[in-house]
Amino acid sequence: MIDFTMVWAVIIAFGVIMYVLMDGFDLGVGILYPLAPDEESRDIMMNTVAPFWDGNETWLVLGGAGLLGAFPLVYSVLLPALYLGVFLLLAGLIFRGVAFEFRFKASRERKHFWSVAFAGGSAVAALAQGIVVGSYIQGYQTENMVYTGGAFDWLTPFTLLTGVGLLVGYALLGSTWIIMKTEGPVQDWAYRIAPKLLAGVLGIFLIISFWTPLVDEFVRERWMNTLSLIWLLPAGALGCAYMVLRAVRRRDEGIPFVATMGLFVFTYLGLLASKWPYVVPPDYTLYDAASAPESQAFLLVGVLFVIPVVLAYTAWTYWVFRGKVRAGEGYH
């Protein structure tokens, strides 16, 4: 008998990191908007992500629907627990999403409004997602599989820090994406800010690493008491960080982005390994949260066939829009 729950855990974990990496760079481009040298650079920056953002955010919708399908308890506890935070996340995504179309259609004065909406929406969405990560580390107050905590349990100094951490992380991902997809002054600017963002990410990463065992006893036990392979993951993350720095110094174009994705993957695996097998900490494991086996099986049949196709045509669209984006091109 196949353990569908385990298969689904892998699929959902894959979907989440796909979302983080893919929407991460296009949210990051938005976060960097206020720092961009000029309005023309902003046009170019937006055009580097315009054909992709919609597909990228679809991974978030898959995360929502997939959780409902495979781990409904996660869906039905986390969303009530994060109620107001979810509203902020969605409001942020709405403003930045429509800015893609509206900004290029707006008059000069209004264009600035949609630049602000794009930047603000991206920043709020990134912050909110980082807060979700922090709240997951903190855990949720539940009774009989129902959330019983307050409206603002998700808002603590710790979650704010994880929020800012992800915000800066996405900005780093965005800056390395810009390095890869642009040239000239925009690229020069991205080369300059990437090391600063990397320093920010590592600083916050360090504080969170010291703070997490204080917030969560379970993680402390896991980190300290078992001399395990788990320590390889932060080491891998640091290795990636070094690669980013070196590649930026050497003005490599593709490696900074790839290495930043590696940094995210190692950090993500570290988080999963620290909390495993709890998906609604501190009480429920993935087996408690699973939907009925026949539902997991029904969905699995399709997903195993469809996801590779999705990945194939997604890769194809990235191939179609490969290469540098130049000023004045890109918009339909």
Binding site: T58, A65, G69, Y313, T314, W316
Partner: peptide
Amino acid sequence: ANFLGPILSYEVVTAFFLEAAFLGVLL
């Protein structure tokens, strides 16, 4: 969730990705 979860997930993987990816090419 045992019914609606898989159905909505199928919507995402069979429809939303298709629309989103090819919309980029269309536009």
